[in-house]
Design a binder for these strands. Structure first.
Lengths: 250, 250
DNA sequence: GTCAACAGGATTGTATACAATTTCTATGAG
DNA sequence: CTCATAGAAATTGTATACAATCCTGTTGAC
């Protein structure tokens, strides 16, 4: 199975992660299946629930003060989305993402992003271009503030703007889905010192290419923009390797 | 909402499509949630269940001789996969695919296929190449038999072989998923008279490109190979237009 | 001391019961 | 005759109960 990121068996993780982890706002809207799905999804993507960790139905049900029924529906959805694995009669487990699979995902992401950029360069109108430029400026501001989290956020919005500009709603959906799936890793990746400056420079090049209606150029830059993240990330994990690695047995 | 393919309101479709439509084989293995999902999925993809048609929980449950619980789980999965739409307190409906969305999906499919071809040309080994050639020959045999269904089947296997040869398991999964999603439309598309011959010729070009390790060439041919299907299909529906079109209001 | 077999407990999968919401139908006003 | 409204029937969403399966700890044979 090769190396795996971020092990489970660190903490039994009693599944009542927090007593305060109530759904949305006060109990105004009782937790529906969708709320539960989103909550757990977020916990997985942010790394709160570690790969390999088991998701206890009863525990989650108790935490949200509902029965197991809506919890199971949420788990079904998460399984179809590929975030967890549902083993019959054994339970639900956060899927372990191997380095290999992660690189593969970045490879596909790069292709989709490149495609979105190419289409955006072909189809963008004045309004959309203005939005993109605005998002890019926001990225620059965030970068200057030297706050990785702020940049992370603006970077997110910038890329989503590109998806939206591509004029292909289906592609937009697929790209957002995969983007979200990778978000936890992308975040880590931005810690690398000079990466933010480089990322920002690439953003500028991307917007210029779209402005110039340079389809091939935009595709190329955008694709590399993502691929670099994948490679950098691979380097990153190759460096630590031991610490948080190896789920079952290294 | 623009034009939509294949309307629902043709037949109440009493949801007991068939009394004989029992699950797998005899009742040896009782119908689990997965079986139900696959059965319904197939019914949707083959066009048996038409876009907009409602999926009655109780009806399906009765048909498979189970309670509503596993049926609901199956529906959840299908909703996440994008095949049906789950409207709260209203029920599950087969998603209507607009022509626009369909073209968008073909556009993405073309990109993924092109990518798979490019990677296959880069990474293929002797064994995989042999498999591809074998699949291609099988396509030729089927084409010569003038049997659209036979060709459809072999065509399916040929494309899956390319996905498997690309060396990116994640891409392979995504491509197969989308491919399956489009299978119903692809099938229709092959009815066009000379399309099979042309498709076969393209297959031969693709294998040659992979054999020659011509990444760019293979990507190009494969991408067009899919895009043509999308365009042809758009032409196709534009032709009929009226007959089986328009779900809510034209 | 090690390993296999078995019983008990715990957890998942399914069925049934009930609550919440929507849709259909009938009634009556305008 | 049309439309709005109220109530009944049907359907979805959730909770609870039960069945099937798996995990754990103990016992006993070798």
């Amino acid at each position: 199975m090769s190396t795996v990121l971020s092990s489970a068996n660190i903490d039994p993780q009693s599944d009542n992660l927090d007593t305060e982890a109530q759904p949305n706002g006060r109990d105004g809207g009782r937790a529906k299946a969708t709320d539960i799905r989103e909550a757990i999804e977020q916990e997985i993507l942010t790394g709160l629930r570690k790969p390999g960790a088991k998701l206890d139905e009863k525990g989650i049900a108790d935490r949200f003060a509902v029965s197991r029924t809506p919890v199971r529906e949420a788990l079904q959805q998460l399984a179809t989305a590929g975030l967890i694995e549902l083993i019959p009669h054994r339970g639900a487990f956060v899927r372990s993402v191997s380095i290999r699979e992660l690189i593969e995902m970045f490879e596909v992401m790069a292709e989709l992003e490149g495609m979105a950029g190419r289409l955006a360069a072909r189809r963008v109108d004045a309004d959309m271009l203005a939005v993109l430029q605005k998002r890019m400026v926001a990225c620059r501001t965030a970068a200057e503030s030297q706050d990785p989290d702020a940049y992370y956020h603006e970077n997110e919005r910038f890329h989503r703007a590109i998806y939206e500009a591509c004029g292909n709603a289906f592609l937009e959906g697929e790209a957002k889905r995969l983007h979200q799936r990778l978000q936890a890793f992308r975040r880590l990746q931005l810690r690398v010192p000079k990466r933010i400056d480089q990322s920002l420079a690439e953003h500028e090049t991307i917007v210029e290419a779209i402005d110039a209606r340079d389809e091939a150029g935009c595709e190329q830059v955008l694709r590399n923009h993502i691929l670099i993240q994948g490679e950098r990330f691979a380097d990153f994990v190759a460096l630590l390797d031991e610490p948080a690695t190896g789920t079952a047995g290294s």
